[in-house]
Design a protein around this nucleic acid. Structure first.
Length: 298
DNA sequence: AATTATGTCAACCGCCCATAG
DNA sequence: GCTATGGGCGGTTGACATAAT
């Protein structure tokens, strides 16, 4: 049984919004604030679906939207965050004040993908294309297709630390956007399955389970205290530093590149003035750059 | 100038999660 | 615990603009 439609589609406008509709929506939200989107259209005198109103407001009419071209720093931040989070546009947008998930998603698909390819980096995995090609040749049975799989922090130049106590769940694996299991990849790339029908059902169920698990992980990640530190250099020698739990931290401290990277890490939030109080508390101004000074193993 | 190809991005769709009843 | 509902998200579509032929 499917869900009932979110609104009476027969009596709603679709397509581009008119200036008059925009003004009605703006006026209504100014007067009443963002409330129940379902009832808003009727109250505001709009022949639109509530969802449509919400989208229009969030993606276009909100007064705090930045609009205009993305800066180089924003580009790099998006790339780093995508390397860490995959296609979690809302999470990425949460780290870019004044930008919407839709805007970032479009920008990624139209600009950044191409940019990464021109750099010789695979936009999905954030690994060198040569490496990908080599890996494909060596292990052609793995097929991630549309997924955004092994986006290891290592590959993206990202270090990860967990500050939250009792959070044992986070490790590299939890940071990687997941879609298909290796078994699934084996299945799909070969183009055949050993058994046709039951495996398909199983596959579907497995996918649903994985999707559920992934969402759970994304929720957990989104609850973490994210401290971003992105270097201004092109794609290396800096880090996007995230805060996670002690267990993950201790594991990650075994990664040799980490301390050197953190020593050079530049806090983009502070550098760009995203921190309302000027400094995030973990960095200091050094030669004009807000650099992290807290050692990782403290 | 007309036609076709390509790029951009606002808007929509369908699904899932959280939550109130 | 179950169901209905609203909100939110990611993926996709399609209209429009611009470039190329």
């Amino acid at each position: 049984m499917g869900r009932s439609p979110c609104c009476e589609k027969a009596h709603t406008n679709k397509g581009a919004w008119t200036k008059e509709e925009d003004q009605r929506l703006i006026d209504y939200i100014r007067a009443h604030g963002e409330g129940c989107w379902r009832s808003l259209p009727k109250s505001a005198g709009l022949l639109r679906c509530g969802k449509s109103c919400r989208l229009r407001w969030i993606n276009y009419l909100r007064p705090d939207l930045k609009r205009g071209n993305f800066t180089e720093e924003e580009d790099e931040l998006i790339i780093k965050l995508h390397g860490l989070l995959g296609n979690k546009w809302s999470l990425i947008a949460g780290r870019l004040p004044g930008r919407t998930d839709n805007e970032i998603k479009n920008y990624w698909n139209t600009h950044i993908k191409r940019k990464l390819i021109s750099r010789g980096v695979d936009p999905q995995t954030h690994r060198p294309l040569k490496e990908i090609a080599g890996a494909n040749a060596a292990a052609s049975h793995l097929d991630f297709r549309n997924s955004s799989p092994p986006s290891l922090p290592v590959a993206a130049g990202i270090s990860v630390v967990n500050n939250q106590p009792n959070n044992n769940a986070h490790n590299f694996a939890t940071l990687q956007p997941k879609t298909e299991s290796v078994e699934d990849a084996n299945c799909t790339s070969s183009g055949t399955t050993t058994e046709e029908e039951p495996p398909q059902l199983q596959h579907r169920q497995q996918q649903q389970q994985q999707q559920h698990q992934h969402r759970q992980e994304v929720r957990e990640i989104s609850e973490l205290n994210l401290e971003l530190s992105v270097g201004l250099g092109p794609f290396q020698a800096e880090s996007t530093r995230l805060s996670f739990g002690n267990t993950a931290e201790s594991k990650l401290q075994q990664v040799p590149f980490q301390s050197a990277m953190v020593a050079q890490a530049v806090c983009l939030c502070c550098h760009l003035g995203f921190q309302s109080n000027g400094l995030c508390g973990n960095c200091q101004n050094s030669n004009g750059f807000y650099r992290y000074y807290r050692p990782l193993d403290s």
